[in-house]
Design a protein around this nucleic acid. Structure first.
Length: 717
DNA sequence: ACGGTTATAACT
DNA sequence: TAGTTATAA
């Protein structure tokens, strides 16, 4: 639950923009003959005509609801046009809607900070734009105010009988005696109207918007006049608005909390909340939620609009209701493969278009158990580090599933033969990729990574900003930072350091490194390297080799500084690790060498030995500034010993090579060169596994980079 | 045991 | 941490 800051006079200008029946509009744009007709978008036409997921306003007039099946919709509206969601790999394919959503975001982000709240909703912070307009070109000076702005709904504005509504709006916008906050909202009206017109012109989509001093009120307002209209909430109208508003209408209160408020506290409207002292709400709902409730009752909400244009995770899932439940492991594996294929494809696009990589793979499933004491038990979700490459995602997801299944059926779970009834059924499956971070554009970030993380005596991680600032100081002049993805230098770096690419390759590579969509303010990435895979393996390989070379020299440089800083010999990577990485496992090296039953096999886990034990609370002693940097920032990396690529060893200083070899003593090292390996092995899997190891260098994950073009392309995007 | 799928955040 | 739960569109 977000904590609302009790800010007495919030003078921000916040807009919430909500696309009107978005999926329908996307289909209407594809098939313009649908325009004006009652239409609904439906998925999975098999059973009862499929489920409606979007309904046009024409169809709503007939009483068609989103919760209906296609067949029901036909009953109340026989003329309804039912358009099916595209299907790929046997499941709904929402990519068309996603990219349509991106078109809208790129337009709406022009005038201020923009937060993609969902596939069809955004928040905008237009404060600066409004202040500027007010200072330089206030509405009062405008002789003509746009029609679209005049169509706005202004809550609390009295429209007496017979009065010209648009004239009233014009007057409200032009009022000289308005206070500063209302004048800002007036500017917001004009800006949002203009943005919405641009969206319509450039995408053919209509949207509705709410304009207010905070997100909560803007969101509330955007839904009040749909479709294709905008609504403003002057602060003088807030009390009146909230007083009679049913509690469930507030964001976050549409579920159990709202029900609890009603049944336990007798709160039916937001206004009813006003009676309760802050302390009462806090003791009933906790300090955070209680404070938040007290504030929202007064229309106060301090949540910032995050500058984020891209999603924070990707997922692909499917349900297998009732009789369609999956009852055999191969059936599950088949569908997992489909889901992973889609996920992998989307991860590749994200990497390609946005220069980001995900770090965690999670599997969710729902299951039923017929004959068991607790058939209530939920199928546990499982996650693991995410490795790029379709085949690897499939393999890992399947392992996660099997781990979950063993846990789910329990120790006494019966093992049955392939076609036999196994006593369980899977009713839904999904895989998702999260912890997405921007990839760095250059290797200076490796130095940054080590420096940021190896600084001893930090019980919690530094914030990214600190890491960046500090790391930047460490870098040799001229080094590029990944926070400068857009700088022209990024391109010249490529050209300078990869001289043997042909021209087209250079172009591809440069463009793949420039321009990203998002404003990056996220965690430092453990995945340090990448190019975009797809077609050209060679260029990738050369790129990576280059980067590794840089790592080598920068590592040496860092080491030098370290020695100087600390005045001690700290000769190895191991030292770096030891001095960093608060890691809640046992403290001896032998304990850190763990064989885990689940996952892909033997893993060498490198962690930090500290007093932290599992489950032991480790709170920073410093003040509030370090709260955010708390345990959430801990990072742990484990490596499959079998996957360590000998070629990367060669890039490391000798003493480090020796040390690493010592850790993994029992493991035999394969002969060391890519071409040789490729030549002596036709096993695509082998190649994938060995190439994986660049992860060792990156201490994160990398796409497969040196898969021979002729080998199994199915495992790639 | 269907309103499906995707996404986010808080809590433990 | 990883996993669960709640919420929303």
């Amino acid at each position: 639950m977000p904590v609302a800051k009790p800010e007495s006079s919030d003078s921000r200008v916040i807009a919430h923009v909500d696309m009107d029946c978005f999926y329908v509009q996307v289909e209407e744009r594809k098939q313009p003959q649908l325009r004006g007709l009652p239409t609904a978008v439906v998925q999975y036409n098999e059973w009862k005509g499929g489920a409606l997921i979007a309904v046009s306003y024409e169809a709503r007039k007939f009483g068609v609801k989103r919760s209906m099946r296609g067949a029901e919709a036909k009953e109340v509206c026989p003329q309804i046009q039912l358009v099916q969601v595209p299907v790929a790999r046997g499941k709904a394919d929402l990519n068309g809607y996603r990219s349509a959503g991106s078109e809208v975001v790129s337009i709406l982000s022009r005038r201020g900070r923009c937060e993609r709240a969902s596939i069809d909703e955004v928040y905008l912070d237009l404060t600066d734009a409004a202040e500027t307009m007010l200072a330089e070109n206030p509405p009062q000076n405008l002789e003509k105010i746009d029609e679209e702005a005049l169509k706005s709904h202004i809550l609390g504005l009295n429209n007496e009988d017979g009065s010209d509504v648009k004239e009233n709006v014009r007057e409200w916008i032009n009022r000289h005696n308005a206070d500063h906050r209302d004048k800002l909202l007036a500017c917001g009206i004009l800006i949002v109207a203009e943005l919405r017109m641009q969206v319509l012109k450039e995408t053919e989509f209509t949207c509705s918007a709410g304009i207010a001093h905070n997100k909560m009120l803007a969101k509330l307002a955007s839904g009040m006049n749909k479709p294709a209209q905008q609504t403003v909430v002057p602060s003088s109208s807030v009390n009146g608005l909230l007083n009679t508003l049913p509690i469930r209408k507030m964001k976050q209160l549409g579920g159990k909390l709202g029900i609890s408020l009603q049944t336990d506290m007798g709160v039916n409207t937001v206004g009813d909340l006003l009676q309760f002292p802050e302390e009462k709400l806090q003791e009933r709902y906790g300090i955070n939620t209680g404070t938040w409730l007290w504030n929202i009752a007064r229309g106060i909400s301090g949540e910032a609009v995050e500058g984020r244009l891209l999603p924070k995770s990707h997922g692909s899932g499917k349900t297998f209701p009732g009789p369609r439940a999956l009852k055999t492991v191969p059936a599950v594996q088949h569908w997992l493969n489909q889901l992973c294929e889609e996920l992998s494809e989307r991860l590749c696009s994200d990497l390609d278009q946005n220069k980001r990589m995900a770090n965690t793979l999670t599997l969710h499933a729902r299951a039923y158990k017929s004959s068991d004491s607790d058939s209530q038990k939920k199928f546990p979700s499982k996650s693991c580090p995410l490795r790029y490459g379709t085949g690897k995602i499939q393999e890992d997801a399947f392992n996660l599933f099997q781990a979950g299944l063993r846990e789910y059926i329990g120790f006494y779970g019966v093992k049955t033969q392939g076609s036999q009834y196994s006593g369980w059924g899977i009713t839904s499956l999904s895989v998702s990729a999260s912890k997405i971070v921007p990839i760095p554009s250059g290797t200076c970030s490796i130095a940054k990574y080590f420096h940021g993380q190896s600084t001893p005596h930090f019980s919690s991680m530094q914030s990214l900003d600190n890491v960046n600032a500090e790391a930047t100081l460490l870098l040799p002049p001229g080094s590029e930072c990944y926070s400068e993805l857009n700088s022209p230098k990024a391109e010249s770096w490529i050209e300078d350091t990869v001289p043997d690419l042909d021209l087209q390759e250079q172009k591809d590579l440069s463009s793949s490194l420039s321009k990203t969509q998002d404003g990056f303010t996220q965690d430092i990435s453990p995945s340090l390297l990448s190019g975009c895979l797809e077609q050209n393996q060679n260029k990738q390989e050369r790129y990576i080799t280059k980067v590794e070379g840089q790592f080598k020299s920068e590592y040496k440089e860092r080491k030098g500084k370290r020695v100087k800083d600390k005045g001690t010999e700290t000769p190895s990577i191991l030292e770096l690790f030891k001095s960093y990485n608060p890691y809640p496992f046992g403290s001896s090296l032998s304990q850190e060498l763990k064989k885990t039953a689940q996952g892909t096999g033997a893993r060498l886990t490198i962690g930090h030995a500290e007093e932290n034990e599992v489950g032991k609370e480790e709170k920073p002693m410093h003040g509030s500034s370090s709260r955010d940097e708390g345990d959430g920032r801990r990072e742990v990396w484990s490596y499959n010993i079998d996957e360590i690529d000998p070629t990367v060893m060669d890039e490391l200083p000798q003493e480090i090579q020796d040390e690493i070899k010592a850790w993994v003593q029992p493991h035999k090292w394969r002969p060391n060169n890519n071409t040789a390996r490729r030549g002596c092995s036709n096993d695509a899997n082998d190649i994938i596994l060995t190439s994986e190891t660049r992860n060792v260098l990156a201490f994160g994950n990398l796409p497969d980079l040196d898969l021979a073009p002729s080998s199994d392309q199915a495992s790639f995007c």
